[in-house]
């Protein structure tokens, strides 16, 4: 579980530097400039997918693009590395179940 440092949260809200997006259809908010993965963690989502092999829950591990554990579906495209993509206004982020599907 992660939280934003309070002085940063306050400054963000005061300056309106927040982004509205959705997580599995639910409205959520993050800091402009957050990676999708950071935005998920800031919203209390620690598990972003289940694995293709055993179906176990997984969350981000490395935050630098090497572990491929933060894979999520972004705007309909599956298996995106959430830590390498910046959250954008209106973005639809979905947690993944198992393998990537055809046309997703």
């Amino acid at each position: 579980m992660f939280r934003r440092l309070p002085e940063i949260e306050t400054a963000l809200n005061a300056a309106g530097q927040t982004v509205s997006f959705t997580i599995d259809g639910r409205p959520a908010s993050a800091r402009a400039g957050d990676s999708v993965t950071a935005a998920l963690l800031a919203n209390g989502v620690t598990a972003c997918r289940t694995t293709a092999v055993s179906g176990a829950a997984r969350g981000p591990y490395c935050m630098m693009g090497v572990c491929y554990d933060c894979l999520v579906t972004i705007d309909g495209t599956g298996n995106r590395q959430g830590c390498q993509v910046r959250v954008a206004p209106g973005m639809a982020v979905e947690t993944q179940n198992g393998k990537r599907e055809v046309e997703r």
Partner: peptide, 25 residues
Amino acid sequence: WTLPGVLGAGAAQVLLKTSGLVPSG
């Protein structure tokens, strides 16, 4: 180590630097 909630310390530092996020709980 594959459980959600287990991360590298370097990963946590990236979260601090890029987003001002720190562990809670």
